[in-house]
Simulated assay, not measured.
Amino acid sequence: MQGLIQAMNTLTRAAGQIQGLRVQWCEPESNPILTTDTDTGKPEAWCYMRLEHIEA
């Protein structure tokens, strides 16, 4: 879960620096959700992020 939260914060902070995209804003759309992968049985975490960008 901590890795997901760090990834969310990094993406939110650095979205404007993604090459090939002109990002206007990026923000989490949901809280992180902790689940178990059905194939491997390992824990995983995920969330939805909203990324608004300008088309070229």
Rank of each mutant, 00 (worst) to 15 (best):
L51R: 02
K42S: 08
V23M: 02
A14I: 04
G16N: 03
L51E: 02
Y48M: 11
A14Q: 10
L21R: 13
A45H: 01
G3Y: 08
Q2D: 09
Q24T: 07
W46D: 05
Q19I: 11
H53L: 04
T36P: 04
E44A: 14
P28K: 00
M49I: 03
I54M: 10
W46A: 13
G3R: 13
S30E: 04
M8R: 12
N9V: 06
L34F: 11
I18A: 00
P32W: 02
L34R: 15
T36V: 12
D37L: 03
A15W: 02
W25F: 12
V23C: 00
G20Q: 04
H53Q: 06
P28Y: 01
T40M: 05
M49D: 00
I18S: 01
M8I: 14
V23E: 04
G41D: 05
A56W: 12
P32S: 03
M1Q: 08
E27V: 08
G20R: 05
E29I: 03
W25S: 14
G16I: 01
Q19R: 14
M1C: 07
E55D: 14
R22L: 07
M49Q: 01
Q2C: 08
T36D: 05
E52D: 06
A14H: 13
L34D: 10
E27A: 14
P43D: 08
N9E: 12
S30I: 03
E52P: 00
E44Y: 14
Q17V: 05
A15H: 08
Q19H: 12
R50W: 03
V23F: 03
K42P: 06
T38W: 09
T12A: 09
A7L: 15
Y48I: 11
T36C: 10
D37H: 13
E55M: 12
E44S: 13
L4D: 01
Y48L: 15
D37V: 02
C26K: 00
Q17M: 14
Y48E: 08
M49T: 03
A7Y: 10
Y48Q: 14
L11N: 00
Q24N: 07
R13D: 04
W25M: 07
L51M: 11
C26F: 04
A14L: 09
R50P: 01
A15C: 08
E55P: 06
G20D: 05
G16Q: 04
E29R: 11
G3S: 07
L34N: 11
I18Y: 02
A7W: 06
T12E: 13
I54Q: 13
N9P: 02
K42T: 08
D37S: 09
H53V: 06
A45K: 01
A45R: 00
H53G: 02
P43A: 11
M1K: 10
S30G: 01
E27F: 06
V23W: 02
T35M: 10
E27D: 04
R50S: 04
T36F: 08
